[in-house]
Design a protein around this nucleic acid. Structure first.
Lengths: 200, 200
DNA sequence: CAGAAAAGAGACAGGTCTGTCTATATGCTT
DNA sequence: AAGCATATAGACAGACCTGTCTCTTTTCTG
């Protein structure tokens, strides 16, 4: 599994890979960089150096390629996050390190926001299920850490941390990593400060 | 100025309006509902009941129409927010009421997230400047309220509130208003609780 | 080695996209 | 009444879109 930010951005297609991999890596880069609708099949075929018939053998429709792209992105992103936070000695430290990890991501070259937020924004209700599933799995992972860290109720704390995470992603995308860093760190610090969280 | 949520969603084109207004109202609905790229000029022309030449007289390119749409959306959204919060007796109450106002918006029929976040997600660096400008003006408005409410430093507090706002918009878009409400209320309550905010 | 699966190259179809053009009708202003 | 801006109606161009098809070559496997 890819665990570096460079690989998160995508290694790009390489000649010695098989046709399916070349197409998928190429789509991975172009879909993230330019968006789903803005990226045409023809361009992916041209840049991946694959024949059209070969493309349609592996991906019967563009939609299938989009879904494969989001699946791959999900696997890589989660893998990167786990790897980036694997040094944390316990769940509490894991949660405390999450904002720094996100900040690294925001500063990685080619950062253009969250592929799932962007995909959902573009496709709306017709967006692949992974756009929502990714967020649910992230929420579940954070909730697990909250439970292990003794932060109760874990689902509620996780929802609070996810809200801050989403906000930071959008802020970083529109205004840059510097604009997101401070508010994100403070939001996490406040949520993790203790159970004396204000009720609605 | 339009001040209701229904009008925020758009009144739609009406026969007695002039051609430019009919086009713009139609674009307003379609761009928000289906996205920028997914909405073709031909469809806007057909649904607004305008001749193609008339369209291109008022909007030399599609990009110009997109910009006009975002300008209008900005004006209406800010107008709606001010109207919705005009009953607040002071700046403190104004800030405290913001999450409820946002929650109303999330629950309005046809809610599909923030037009500026969505537009930026779709068009990236080529997105119209208004996608970013809108957020800056909203941040400035919140910062003004923070200053009036004696929350210091106002820009920092405003950035914290904006982060929560953006996160809530995205959560509401992907998971529904119910998922966003609790975390948003708690985030605001924490930030507004006092100046003893944890440092990074 | 022989057959099958996969890949390459590219023509083609049918649709949609933005934007231009011609021709005609309507309504306002002077 | 004349002229002009604006409207309608719709053909048209040229590009791009997804997806299908044919034909040849390579590569893998039994």
């Amino acid at each position: 599994m890819f665990t570096t930010l460079d690989n998160l951005a995508g290694p790009g297609p390489q000649p010695d890979q098989d046709a399916r991999t070349r197409v998928l890596e190429c789509a991975y880069r172009l879909f993230y960089r330019h968006g789903l609708r803005a990226t045409g099949i023809d361009r992916i075929i041209a840049e991946s150096g694959v024949a059209k018939a070969s493309f349609y053998r592996h991906f019967p429709t563009k939609q299938a390629l989009v879904e494969a792209y989001l699946d791959l992105r999900h696997a890589r992103w989660m893998g990167w996050m786990e790897s980036r936070l694997s040094a944390a000695p316990d769940a509490r430290a894991w949660l405390a390190a999450l904002p720094d990890a996100l900040d690294d991501w925001f500063r990685a070259p080619g950062f253009r926001g969250c592929a799932f937020i962007n995909g959902h924004a573009e496709a709306g209700t017709e967006a692949p299920a992974m756009t929502v599933t990714h967020k649910r799995e992230l929420a579940a992972r954070i909730a697990r850490a909250c439970a292990e860290a003794g932060l109760a109720p874990p689902d509620e704390v996780a929802a609070d941390l996810l809200l801050a995470t989403e906000g930071a992603i959008v802020r970083a995308q529109m205004e840059g990593a510097d604009a997101a860093r401070g508010p994100l760190l403070r939001a996490f610090a406040r949520v993790l400060a203790g159970p004396e969280r204000a009720a609605a």
